[in-house]
């Protein structure tokens, strides 16, 4: 799949923002007033910024309100509604926290629960795609949730918790890659089933339908950069979770270290999201003799 920057930024940043809301809503981080305001502002900048970025991916961003209608069937629609509701509920909680120094536990827990469901619905936009076997797995949701939790814990200064979550993330990330590598073969889809010609022998593409490229090929058959996949996986794994985990658990905590770990985690997170799209193969590639 084509790793569009707008979608990479959307999933990465909104995951972090809603991850922060989970911990702030559950009453973690014992601060108040201006300090609380800064944390709330960061959570909003990340979640809101991510959502705004996703609009740049649309052919008609001015019609985005229409996307809130089909919550009965569409995960994208659910994600849109849930993120708005989450931000609204968290907003009430945050205003009370900042101005009256009251952290309403009921309201906070509700906001935290909504934030979890929002991250889950983001993951389901991808996990529902049967046509993209690597994504079509519960592991996609586990991964998105853990990235949200680990990043959220890190950004709300939950040093030890963030360290352990980063370790869990590293394990889940490796499991997801191993499982994902065999996902396409498990579907049973090949050029034989795609064309129905499998009963005649081994199928190969003799001629493409056109001399150039097309929307399908540029959007769903992304082969550029796949040769660097192992290097990028190592970067995503070490910077995204392993090094942050070691630094958080082994070194004495402090603001400078926190900032360094956040930067390292961000680089790893973006590498992971780039891979998430670039590595994913769509079955339509079978009609083009590519994956």
């Amino acid at each position: 799949m084509h790793p569009a920057p707008s979608v990479i930024i959307f999933t990465a940043l909104s995951g972090l923002g809603f991850g922060m809301m989970v911990f702030l809503g559950l009453g973690f981080l014992d601060v108040s007033g201006w300090v609380a305001f800064v944390f709330v502002a960061v959570a909003y900048a990340l979640s809101g910024g991510g959502l705004l970025s996703s609009l740049f991916h649309l052919g008609h961003p001015e019609r985005f309100v229409k996307a809130l209608r089909q919550w009965r069937s569409s995960w994208l629609s659910r994600e849109g509604i849930l993120s708005i509701v989450t931000m609204a509920v968290f907003g009430i909680y945050a205003v009370m926290w900042i101005f009256t120094d009251v952290r309403n536990p009921a309201l906070g827990s509700l906001a935290a629960a909504l934030a979890v469901v929002t991250i889950y619905s983001t993951s389901m936009i991808y996990a529902q795609m049967k046509s993209v076997p690597r994504w079509h797995s519960p592991m996609t949701s586990v991964l998105y949730l853990l990235y949200g939790f680990a990043g959220g814990a890190l950004l709300t200064a939950q040093v030890t918790l963030a360290g352990w979550l980063m370790l869990a993330l590293a394990v889940v990330q490796v499991v997801t890659w191993v499982q994902g590598d065999g996902a396409f073969a498990k579907t049973g889809s090949d050029m034989g089933t795609a064309t129905g010609l499998g009963f005649l022998g081994k199928v190969r593409l003799l001629e493409k339908p056109h001399s150039g490229t097309n929307y399908l090929m540029s959007e769903m058959i992304h082969v550029i950069g796949r040769k660097h996949i192992m290097k990028l996986r190592i970067i995503a794994l070490t910077l995204g979770s392993l090094i942050p985990a070691v630094l958080l658990l082994a070194l004495p905590s402090g603001h400078v270290l926190g900032l360094v770990v956040i930067m390292i985690h961000l680089v790893g997170l973006f590498a992971q999201r780039w891979l998430f799209f670039a590595e994913a193969e769509h079955v339509v590639g079978l009609y083009y003799g590519q994956r």
Partner: peptide
Amino acid sequence: DCIGCGLCAWSCPYG
């Protein structure tokens, strides 16, 4: 009504 999100094209196995 189409916002051009492209999700339907992603979901179609046949292109």
